[in-house]
Design a binder for these strands. Structure first.
Lengths: 154, 154
DNA sequence: TTGCTCCTCACGTCACGTGAGGTGGC
DNA sequence: TTGCTCCTCACGTCACGTGAGGTGGC
């Protein structure tokens, strides 16, 4: 709190992330962000790099996976639970308990990876279709070129 | 029109595509579908495999790229323009004109591919971050396992 | 004739967009 | 003090969801 961590205003954050201030306020309203960004009601909100990274993550998940804000909130809460567990992990000396915590974290990560990979497959399929179309068009174009040069020579 | 082409009802189409009848009606209302699926107002809408394929394409672009319905409508109109050009292509004997048509189609396809690839890159980056997290968790878990077996033997 | 799915309004909702009117900090 | 960005309502919009009440086809 004593160190000046380069806290910046909502407009700058929004511009850096390619969103609008309204979106950031709405996410705060929906409980996706800690409302600690605003000390009191009516005051300017200030964000540090940590907050920006968190928002960045939310935007990536929203755009990349098309998740609803409720889904995103679940993910965030799970993430916070993981952070809490990491703290417990640092405290505890019970190795059995430590393994439980890490295994839970691992399952959570694997679920997210599965979601991303499913989306990647649909995109790959979409791209496959488009590339096939492109090949057709290119082939046709090459035929036309040959046909024209053939006319010139014949 | 004389052949029975297996036309099916809106509920069946919706179920096959994983959407709701309301979505299909809304797309028709917004001009994304030919309203020829419904002969007269108030009558049941009927769809053939061609209509279903078109809807399928719309849904894939919507989910895969996160396009708005206005964007999708533009794409569809461009697609119809391409179809019209293909008809002209079949008619015309002017090779220069034919090349123009095919080149236009090629540019259109390439723009779509660029959109898909941009989305793929963000997903790949997202996956990369998650995979790194998974590696960390796995390493930590392996360390814990070694540590526990070490206790047993010591 | 009985269900079932369909139809058309029409209002609700989610995720913001867009001003209206006013206050705060370099 | 002047701009600029910020603030809080609060209503609008886009892409549907969700009944309400009624008609159509195997």
């Amino acid at each position: 709190v004593s160190a000046v961590t380069g806290r910046c205003r909502i407009g700058e954050v929004a511009q850096r992330l390619g969103i609008t201030p309204r979106t950031i306020r709405y996410y705060e309203e929906r409980g996706l962000l800690p409302s600690t960004s605003q000390d009191q009601k009516g005051r300017h909100r200030l964000y540090d790099e940590n907050d920006v990274a968190r928002l960045q993550e939310i935007i990536r998940l929203r755009d990349g996976l098309g998740l609803t804000l409720d889904d995103l909130k679940e993910l965030i809460e799970a993430e916070e639970a993981r952070a809490a567990l990491r703290n417990e992990l640092a405290e505890t000396v019970d190795d059995a308990r430590r393994m439980e915590i890490v295994e839970a974290a691992l399952h959570y990560i694997e679920r997210q990876i599965a979601l991303v990979e499913a989306r990647q497959e649909t995109l790959a399929s979409l791209r496959g279709d488009l590339v096939a179309k492109r090949r057709m068009a290119r082939t046709r174009l090459a035929q036309l070129r040959r046909s024209r040069s053939g006319e010139h020579h014949g």
